[in-house]
Write a protein that binds this DNA or RNA. Sequence first.
RNA 1: UGUCCAUUGGUGUAAUGGUAGCACAUCUGACUCUGGAUCAGCCAGUCUAGGUUCGAGUCCUGGAUGGACAACCA
Length: 564
Amino acid sequence: MEENLSLNFLEEIIEQGLREGTYNSILTRFPPEPNGYLHIGHAKSICLNFGLAKKYGGKTNLRFDDTNPVKEDTEYVDSIQQDIRWLGFDWAGVHYASDYFEQLYEWAIVLIKKGLAYVDDQTQEEIRAGRGTVTEPGKNSPWRDRSVEENLDLFERMRKGEFADGEKVLRAKIDMAHPNMQLRDPIMYRILHANHHRTGDKWCIYPMYDYAHGQSDSIEHITHSICTLEFDIHRPLYDWFIEQLGIFPSHQYEFARLNINYTVMSKRKLLQLVKEHYVSGWDDPRMPTICGFRRRGYTPESIRNFCEDIGVAKRDNIIDYVRLENSLRDHLNKVAPRRMAVLNPVKLVIDNYPEGQTEMLTAVNNPENEADGTRQVPFSRELYIEREDFMEDAPKKFFRLSLGREVRLRYAYFVTAQSVEKDAEGNITCIHCTYDPATRGGDAPDGRKVKGTLHWVSAQHAVDAEVRMFDRLFATEAPDEAPEGKTFLDNLNPDSLKVLQGCKLEPALADARMVVNERGIEEPMRFQFERMGYFCTDRDSTPEHLVFNRACSLKDTWAKISQG
RNA sequence: UGUCCAUUGGUGUAAUGGUAGCACAUCUGACUCUGGAUCAGCCAGUCUAGGUUCGAGUCCUGGAUGGACAACCA
């Protein structure tokens, strides 16, 4: 039993608050904006928010931060909920910032009455210019000192739709010379005559993030509002609104977002990959989206374990892509049934095996889990083996089949290659070998050893399939970094997908298909193809045309390749 | 030439003034009917200069480096 005794900084904060009686239980929230699909970076946040609440007996709300109607859509609301559920989490309540529009509006009036907010008639350009720069203070708006009555009147008329988009905004009155730019009279409301996916045309003014988020937290009595580092400088503003309004004091804490090498994480870039068809969609198995990983064959456990393993802190980090794969391998190694599949087949004929004979051999389903039992695999005179598993003239370190060398066919017999047939181009079309009947099951009674063990499939019993061999979407470690005149698209890995047709599978794979899991979500069946990697059924698969995706290889090979 | 945040092996992450530890990766060996898994082992770290202290990764001051902020995005 390995218990992680050290606490991360958020656990420290929570335990301190619990100890000191600041609160008796915690309530966190996961606050996505419904303007895109969730990715692995969100998974870290989800695991954190739900994980922390679970650890300390609290709860987590799902809240859609839907304050910008022009970017948001219900398509995303649905996919986000499905992805969170698939990851294995259940929220206490599902909320929308838009549910709070009326309350937010009333609070804005409170601030106006306190002389802490004003309607500004400046244009967008004027406001931008007036804000100053990071090194120069800003200038007060000429409208900054309007009377409370006038502000109240104008703000009400903004709501009524008397003004066009961009004509006026409501601003908090703080300090135009503040060194933290977030406090230079931030905009609270803007006019947007746009249809909202939930409130329809009820509103034509919409609150900005800074004015909506903290207050939404407060309304829900969120104790720990956990977000990423870039919001650090917003915290004084988050606290300012809550303090001026005198409402429930939620607190914001920031952690470093997840970065993974060979991966892009920005919503904008992911959207571009989809829109411009560099991938087949949001759930393309090469995408770092949750649905992409699901289709790729990742398990929720593997993603949760990954998020747990990488830890959480406040320093920027770039996680090795291999850790993600390792986390998958760890889990699938324990749970994925083993099957034999020949992806690049070449015929192997056993000359001294009786023609027309078939026998059933016993194969272990998962050596890591005895309870998975065994299955029968048909064996006959003509088989397929992997083309890469034979070499006519092999070096010493080649442990597989070559002329005159003996290897084991897994769970079957020892065979020795005798000769090959070739086509006009010199490609091997058939390998002839002999077998030792005494080695049935895979062991020699005389105790002799072989170096290699090959997987195989009986030619007459084989099932055909298409196999999609996925690799990293990007060929470079930091895809975002492109030289002059290039973009991240130039860093795409041209070999990220290779489609193999005519792969030969053992018959037990014939009924592999998509299944609906206990949470009601469609998932692939996952297997280990012995010696080849982990594979899963794709949603394109049909009983007539099986399609499998490679989730990952058995072991990382990139490090060695890059060493040369 | 602003404000804020950060800096510990290759990569992550602990050590809360008292022995710099763990994981992943790499490498080596053992074992193996998957060149997988498993097991064992090696290599490798406190950004820098001062200061406080019996004692500093930790506290203080300066510097360096990286990141965030000048959307009517979140």
